[in-house]
Design a protein around this nucleic acid. Structure first.
Lengths: 231, 231
DNA sequence: AAGTTAAATAAACACTGTATATATACAGTG
DNA sequence: CACTGTATATATACAGTGTTTATTTAACTT
């Protein structure tokens, strides 16, 4: 038999491939993603996957975009579930949501921000917008705080840093560049802690040490710096 | 010929292997490290490498330890070359040295802090002490600032975070835990920015956007928080 | 019913890390 | 010097990888 009857094959093979890829990533680490292993699990042959993804890299890119969207959903949910909260509380909630997602999906987090797949290089024209979409959640929260006039912006910037201006030029933002600066700084800080925590650089074993309170202290310091400590 | 004459072979094959591995990592990315490619370059066969490194992972571990030491040298050099500098200047210098090393050795930086080698997991009993040795440079600088009484420690910690206490228990530190907190926080922040910068998450192309002034603003904010803004 | 298209297979290529067995240059000893 | 043992390399083989090609056939179209 060369082509199976429609009844006998997966109804949505493209999604089935991604699901198996995800579960195998979680089980064996994202580095050991293997088209052949996916094919074995689905009882098809490896080249069949090429009907849905032109190459292994395109599959990886699809997984990355899915991961970005999953993270973005978590961030938006953290805001949507907040009613009449202060600006500080909103930032805190988004920071916690970011971390909780990362701890719940470490392989996918590394897939996005690390380089776990040999010789894979993310095509920024695809992943860039997905990333910016998530960034804009944090920017949105800080933008509201700025509009509320509670953001401590005095003396932060002598002039707009190149990278901040480049981001604004590319993805657009109407408002004080210091809002983007704060967003990028907060993102960097949170990402730095998570990257070190997830990859076990804070302790011998990743789950060995509880980093919760360290994280809380630093988010609080972040809020203090931005003038949002009232929480 | 099964075994080459001593005159015809590399005088220090172990180091030659590491050097070729490093240069190939730099050229093709650390993910494409290949024992066979190394062997080809050295005109030996792949299994010969096993006489010097029990497995590919042991070679990677050796490269990681070398990278840690190289980074550590850069950090220590940044301090040794400073005479009669303020505590703030010393922190600033170590932050700049850290970033400069990372930008000059991006593949080695990812080798240390990312997971670029498929299915490789760093043995923390070896890499842990190497990492702690570098961390202690930053802790040392902040410890001096604390002893000078200029570190703004009031109200930072309600109690010592678990992760900070665990680090102190493991690697030892006599002094205020807030010094370690500040060191870990600064490290996280710097690492976060570098990880995003090096892996191109700040822009489409890694070298596309100048992140220097963004970095400076954030280090300055870091110093302000710790009470070292006098520089 | 015939022709076309789409989705799978089978086989092969060039790689990879690693294990095993084998050959030989060199060092140490009688 | 001759003999032996060990260290260091090779040769070969195995199981795995992503990918390409040609082939087959189910399903759709006319």
């Amino acid at each position: 038999m060369v082509r199976p009857k429609q009844k006998e094959q997966h109804p949505d093979l493209e999604n089935a491939i991604k699901e198996v890829a995800r579960s195998q990533m979680i089980e064996n680490g994202s580095a050991s993603l293997s088209l052949r292993a996916i094919a074995r699990a689905l009882k098809i042959t490896a080249p069949a996957i090429y009907n849905y993804f032109p190459s292994r890299d395109d599959l990886v890119t699809a997984l990355i975009v899915d991961a970005y969207n999953s993270l973005g959903d978590a961030l938006r949910l953290s805001q949507a579930s907040l009613q009449k909260a202060s600006d500080g509380e909103r930032v805190f909630a988004s920071a916690r949501a970011y971390r909780n997602w990362a701890l719940a999906h470490p392989e996918e987090y590394n897939l996005i921000f690390g380089t776990p797949i040999p010789n894979y290089h993310a095509p920024m024209e695809i992943t860039g917008p997905a990333a910016a979409g998530n960034m804009s959640v944090l920017i949105g929260v800080l933008h509201n705080a700025w509009q509320d006039g509670v953001l401590k912006t005095e003396g932060v910037l002598r002039s707009t840093p190149n990278m901040i201006q480049a981001w604004i030029n590319k993805f657009g933002y109407e408002g004080d560049p210091v809002v983007v600066q704060f967003a990028m700084a907060s993102w960097s800080q949170i990402h730095g802690m998570l990257s070190l925590e997830i990859n076990g650089h804070f302790a011998a074993v990743p789950d060995d040490v509880d980093v919760d309170d360290f994280f809380e202290v630093e988010i609080r310091a972040m809020l203090t710096r931005m003038g949002l400590e009232g929480e």
